[in-house]
């Protein structure tokens, strides 16, 4: 039982970064960005290829993060400059990236269990017996850094502009902001975080797989929504912490469900999709009516 808990905790922490990335596009920019699926795999592909080439795992993880930002840039370019609808732009990126990921990796799967990763480094440093324990610590460290940076960023002039673009791009243009730029920045930031998460998860799993991003967006959404249900506060800090908890809770649910006799691991995607469908419909049903004051 403890091992299930620890596994859920460590996986939840590492996937939480991805969910935070999803939050930026889905909730802040109001775009359902499917680039996420391939950006997650891209992060794994880049980190694994780099590590196998002998690059330091920390630097490899940074490279993976940057590669995700580039993926977001491509989607942003398709959407804002070529005027392709955001959903389709994401699908195009996702589809194209699949081939790019295979090119980077050279094969569909790269094992990492013989190589040094961020996790082995961290557990060696702290003298930990198992890499899984290091995963939780690493997840906490990365989550704290990401949350602090995001809170700072979204309280800057540029951060305000991104939030405003998501809820009202007419308003932000009328106030002199190039909304193409803010959309682009949001997509890059989101996919950079998603690729970072993909890179961490690959190192945790001990391999990178070209298919590891399939269904990622739904997992991310599930975490975002579980977080919103638990923490109803709309404060940005609480929202982000809520997503981390949402991600961990999602992993716990998965761990419990997968132990049921009549459910096999193959059913998980269907199960997740159903959870998200129910959760989204519940949150929209429950949404309090807009408060209208009389003046």
């Amino acid at each position: 039982m403890t091992s299930i808990l620890i596994s859920a905790l460590s996986q939840g922490m590492l996937w939480a970064i991805m969910a935070i990335g999803i939050h930026i596009t889905y909730r802040i920019l109001n775009i359902s960005d499917l680039t996420s699926e391939s950006a997650f795999a891209l992060g794994g592909a880049v980190v694994a290829t780099a590590i196998v080439l002998g690059i330091d795992p920390i630097l490899a993880t940074v490279l993976a993060t940057i590669s995700g930002g580039l993926a977001g840039f491509v989607t942003g370019f398709l959407h804002t400059k070529l005027h392709i609808p955001s959903l389709l732009a994401g699908i195009l990126s996702m589809t194209g990236l699949y081939s790019v990921n295979l090119r980077i990796m050279g094969k569909a799967n790269i094992p990492l269990n013989m190589s040094d990763t961020i996790l082995t480094k961290l557990s060696d440093l702290l003298g930990m017996a198992r890499d899984r324990d290091a995963a939780i610590l690493l997840g906490v460290i990365v989550a704290v850094i990401v949350i602090v940076l995001l809170i700072w960023f979204f309280n800057t002039e540029f951060g305000f502009s991104i939030v405003a673009t998501g809820s009202n791009d007419q308003m932000i243009r009328a106030n002199g902001v190039n909304s193409d730029l803010t959309i682009m920045a949001g997509l890059m930031l989101s996919n950079a975080l998603i690729a970072l998460s993909g890179a961490l998860v690959s190192q945790y799993n001990g391999y990178a797989d070209v298919g590891q991003g399939i269904g990622a967006i739904v997992v991310g959404l599930a975490s975002v929504i579980i977080g919103e249900v638990i923490f109803k506060n709309k404060n940005f800090f609480i929202t982000l912490v809520g997503i981390v908890f949402g991600s961990i809770i999602y992993r716990l649910i998965v761990a419990l469900v997968i132990n049921l006799d009549f459910i096999s691991a193959n059913d998980m995607r269907l199960f997740t999709a159903i959870i998200v469908a129910i959760a989204i419909s519940l949150t929209t049903f429950k949404k309090p009516r807009k408060v209208k004051s009389h003046d």
Binding site: F153, T156, E157, S161
Partner: peptide, 9 residues
């Protein structure tokens, strides 16, 4: 004005 990374408010 150009939006920088200065504090928003």
């Amino acid at each position: 004005k150009v939006r920088s990374l200065k504090k928003g408010i």
